[in-house]
């Protein structure tokens, strides 16, 4: 599914020295895996997610997604891949303000080229248990509900890959558990999940853990998942 080979990412800054966020990172993630990325703040976890998620291109090395070499793709091609294959979930939810839950969920359909399919958006909301909240604005929803809307949005184009960057970081443990339950269910459906987290409890859901430090891989371990 994902194959990173000698990927580096260097951020050049106008003032000050360049920052090496990723330094010669290589790993493969197979289809259907549930992987967590762990490591201290600034280790490069988000940077990896951005490269895999086609939001950014590596400074060096290659990234393959489903066999497609995306590191040299054009903006347009990358956008297509993002829209069809990838669902992002962010720590800060990133719902559009003054926009209903349903409209937020519809958003990715706009760029996928098809018609806006309201029923599909309603089904996606139903999946995350928020059918009753379709007409609510983001500000009227709790953090956990907002994150579930964001997951519904990530699912709307039925992507095989879900990239979640500390999705439970802003949630209390109950809401976090709900979110993790949904992600686990998505994994059970056969989707590939890459999850960035600090939380030991959250990491326990995954089958594999890649630890990063200073832009390098520190360890890459498989683990036995407790019965769910």
């Amino acid at each position: 599914m994902i194959a990173l080979s000698h990927v580096s990412k260097v951020y050049r800054r106008p003032d000050g020295p360049p920052v090496t966020a990723l330094d010669d990172v290589s790993f493969d993630i197979g289809a259907g895996e549930f992987v967590t990325l762990r490591g201290p703040s600034g280790a490069g976890k988000s940077s990896i997610l951005h490269v895999i998620g086609c939001l950014d291109t590596p400074s060096a090395g290659t990234c393959r997604l489903d066999g497609e070499e995306i590191s040299r793709y054009s903006d347009r091609a990358l956008s297509r891949v993002r829209g069809r294959k990838i669902g992002f979930v962010f720590q800060s939810f990133n719902l559009l303000p003054r926009t209903t839950a349903l409209e937020n969920v519809e958003l990715p359909m706009i760029y996928a080229g098809g018609r806006l399919d309201r029923q599909r958006a309603e089904r996606a909301l139903d999946r995350v248990g928020l059918a009753q909240r379709a007409g609510h604005y983001a500000t009227e929803l709790s953090g956990g509900e907002q994150q579930r809307v964001a997951i519904a949005r990530a699912l709307i184009n039925d992507p095989p890959l879900i990239l979640a960057d500390e999705p439970t970081g802003n949630l209390d443990s109950a809401a976090g558990a709900e979110v993790m339950a949904i992600l686990t269910a998505l994994h059970a459906e056969g989707r590939t999940i890459v999850l960035v987290t600090h939380d030991e409890g959250v990491a326990a859901y995954a089958h594999r853990e890649i630890a990063l430090r200073d832009g390098r891989i520190e360890s890459d371990r498989r683990r036995v998942v407790a019965a769910q």
């Binding site: 956008s79 069809r84 559009l96």
Partner: peptide, 16 residues
Amino acid sequence: QREIGLRRSVGASRVD
């Protein structure tokens, strides 16, 4: 900005 970033992340290209 944030809205634009979000739209990009869900599949909008620069041209979009």
